[in-house]
Computed example of a mutant assay.
Amino acid sequence: MNYTRKPVVINVKITDLQRNWLAETSRKIRDNNIDPVPPSERVYPQHLLGVAIDLLMNAEIDWQQVRNIEELRKELQL
């Protein structure tokens, strides 16, 4: 993956539960640091979403066979 590309803004709808989990989890990750972390290295929800996309991009899934979200969840064993 090339992580030096400039981020772009997208509009994504997620559930309240997912939004809260992203915020809480990124806060926990930031709190794991004892020493101050430069702003460019801090973890925020957008970073977790980016990692999730990387996981999907690298998943062993035959995307030509996936027809809906339930099939995708099954392929990912969720």
Rank of each mutant, 00 (worst) to 15 (best):
D62N: 15
Q18S: 08
T4F: 10
T25E: 15
Q77T: 06
M1W: 14
Q64D: 15
L76Y: 01
N32Q: 09
T4P: 02
E75T: 02
V12A: 12
V8E: 14
T4S: 14
V51Q: 10
L78M: 09
D16E: 10
R27N: 06
D35A: 11
L17H: 06
P39C: 04
D62I: 05
N68S: 08
L76A: 03
E71W: 06
P7V: 06
K28R: 15
V51P: 00
N20C: 03
V8A: 12
I53Q: 04
Y3T: 13
I53N: 01
V37Q: 06
E60R: 09
N11W: 09
N11A: 13
I14T: 10
A23I: 10
I34Y: 02
H47C: 01
L76K: 04
P39G: 07
L76H: 03
D35M: 09
N2H: 12
H47Y: 04
N2D: 15
R30H: 05
K6I: 11
I69R: 07
P7G: 07
L17I: 05
V43H: 01
Y44I: 09
E70K: 15
P38R: 11
W21S: 11
V9G: 04
L56R: 00
T15L: 05
D35N: 13
Q18G: 02
S40V: 10
W63L: 07
Q65M: 14
Q64F: 09
K28L: 15
T4Q: 13
A23T: 11
D54I: 03
L56N: 01
N33E: 08
L22D: 03
K74N: 14
M1D: 12
S40W: 14
Q18D: 08
K74I: 12
I61V: 14
D31F: 00
D35E: 13
Y3I: 10
A23G: 04
